[in-house]
Design a protein around this nucleic acid. Sequence first.
DNA 1: ATGGCAGAAGCATTCTGA
Length: 281
Amino acid sequence: MLIATWNVNSIRTRLSQIIDWINQVNPDILSLQETKVIDDGFPVEPFEKLGYSVEIYGQKSYNGVAIISKTKAENIKKGFYDYSNSHQNIEIFQNQKRLISADINGIKIINVYVPNGSSLESDKFEYKINWLNSLASFLDEQEKKGDLICLMGDFNIAPSNLDIHDPKKYEGGIMASEIERKALNNVLKGRLIDSFRIFEKNTGHWSWWDYRNNAYELNKGWRIDHIYISKELSPKLKSCVIDSLPRGNLRPSDHAPVMINLDINDNNLDFFDDEDNFFEI
DNA sequence: ATGGCAGAAGCATTCTGA
C-alpha cells in the first residue's frame, strides 16, 4: 500500500500536476495540504474519475487539507474534534482547517498542516506550539483506543540539523528551534517513528525549497514534510522516498511529495526501534 | 536588515507563507 503526503500550495493551481503524479505513481492514499479553497470549490471529479474517493476540510485562501483514497475512508473527523488540549480554547483552532483524520484499511490516517509560526517572537509561534500540544492530546486519545496510526503532512519543523541545508545559518530559528523540536517529540512520544530515517541516515534530503533565491536549482532545502507511523506498523514498512521531481515542474508547489510503501500483508514482527531515529537537537 | 517568489482575493495592492 502506497501512502503519500504533499503540500500542493493550492489544489486548483496544481490540479493537472497532481493528476499527472497520481497517474505515474498510483498511490493508495494521498494526503494534501494547503488546498486553499472552500469545500464547494474543491475539484473532486478529476480524482473520482481515477477511482478515488475524496474527503476535504478547507477554507477560503488559506490552509485546507484533504485525503484522497482508493478505499473509501471511514470515521472521518475534521479538526481536533473534542480532543483539543483542555488548557486551550478549541475555537481558536477551528478557524484554521489544518487537520483531517479517517480510518482506511485498518489504519488511522491523520493528515496535518502544522502552522508555520513565522518567528519565535511572533504570536503565531505561540499558536504553533499550542497547536502541536493539542495534536499530542489528540494522539493520546487515538492511542487509548489502540489505533494503528499513520500521521503525515507538512510539519514546518526540521526534526534535526541533518534536515537543513545550512543548519548554522538557521540554528535556533523558525522550523529549527529546540522549542519546536521538543513539541514535535512530545507528539511522537516514542510511539511513532520517522519513516524516512529508517532508511536514510544522512543529510542532503529535502522536501521543501523556498521559491526565492533559486533555492531548488541550488538544492538549498529543508526536510519538513514527514510520515510518522506507529511502531507496531514498522515491520510492514518497506520504503520511504521523497519524490523531488515535481519541484522541478513549471509553476511547481514549493513542496515535494513524500511516500511510504507499507506492506499490510507482511506479518513479520521485527520492529524498528526508536534508536534508529534521529531526534538529537 | 531587507528582499527575494508565489497564491488568493479581486483589480491595486495586501496578506500569508516558510
